[in-house]
């Protein structure tokens, strides 16, 4: 369970509040620059909120003793140093959270990078980098997944794979929060953010309301219809 409670940052976020619940994919949607990444970074303890709290299972991220076993996060890029092989990258990560080394091979297999395990991360294509980032997120088999723009850089097959993968994660009972400026993926709950404020929050049906489709609702809520 993820809870964002009245999180603010000057000029970026204004009293942002929402929840993401277990067993559901929560889409955190908004135009570019709306505050999605800032919110995610505050949730993950990378940036600070000036006021408000962001917790995962009632704890701030930095208080989690072995965070990779609770939250898997996918942010921009592969997260690996260019000169490191995919395997070496995942190995130090496993060591940092006292995870068994065997997990490295398992997650490489899950994301389809077994063949590329010995290649340096700097030589990966965009899609492979994202897969490596996802492998790192899955290393601790976490019940919570936080993904910032996970579809960026994926080819159509990759997008399809990611969509199915996320639905499967939610079906397994995991909490899945994913931010995106795209709307083309299956969600259970929706949070729409615009200019640092939550414009709508609820189940897909609630947010769609009378708008007919999520696209129409999104455009109406964010005032981007002039496109």
């Amino acid at each position: 369970m993820i809870r964002i409670d009245r999180v603010s940052r000057p000029r970026i976020l204004h009293e942002v509040s929402f929840e993401a619940r277990p067993g559901r994919v929560t889409g955190f949607l908004g135009p570019n620059g709306a505050g999605k990444t800032s919110t995610v970074r505050i949730l993950l303890g990378l940036d600070r909120a000036s006021t408000g709290t962001a917790t995962i299972n009632s704890q701030p991220y930095a208080a989690l003793p072995r965070p990779l076993t609770v939250v898997g996060a996918l942010l921009d890029g592969s997260g690996a140093h260019r000169a490191r092989t995919a395997r070496a990258h995942l190995r130090w990560l496993a060591a940092s959270n006292a995870l068994p080394r065997a997990r490295v091979g398992e997650v490489l297999e899950t994301v389809g990078l077994t063949e590329a395990a010995g290649r340096r991360a700097g030589r990966f294509s965009l899609g492979m980098s994202r897969r490596l980032g996802l492998a790192a997120a899955l290393l601790g088999d976490p019940p919570v997944l936080v993904l910032d723009e996970p579809f960026n850089g994926l080819d159509p097959a990759g997008i399809l794979w990611m969509r199915e993968f996320l639905s499967r994660c939610a079906a397994e009972g995991r909490t899945v929060l994913l931010s995106s400026h795209l709307l083309d993926f299956p969600v259970d709950d929706v949070v729409v953010i615009n200019r640092g404020r939550v414009a709508a929050h609820g189940t897909l049906a609630e947010v769609q309301g009378d708008h007919g489709s999520l696209e129409d609702a999104f455009l109406a809520l964010t005032g981007a219809a002039s496109w």
Binding site: L46, A73, D76, G77, S78, G79, A80, L126, S129
Partner: peptide, 26 residues
């Protein structure tokens, strides 16, 4: 410095320190 070098051209602002802090947030 290895923590702060860009992880790739596709994400110029991204660096390994993010991964490090996600794994070891204290």
């Amino acid at each position: 410095s290895s923590e702060y070098t860009s992880t790739g051209d596709d994400a110029p602002g991204a660096h390994q320190m993010t991964t490090t802090l996600l794994a070891m947030p204290r």
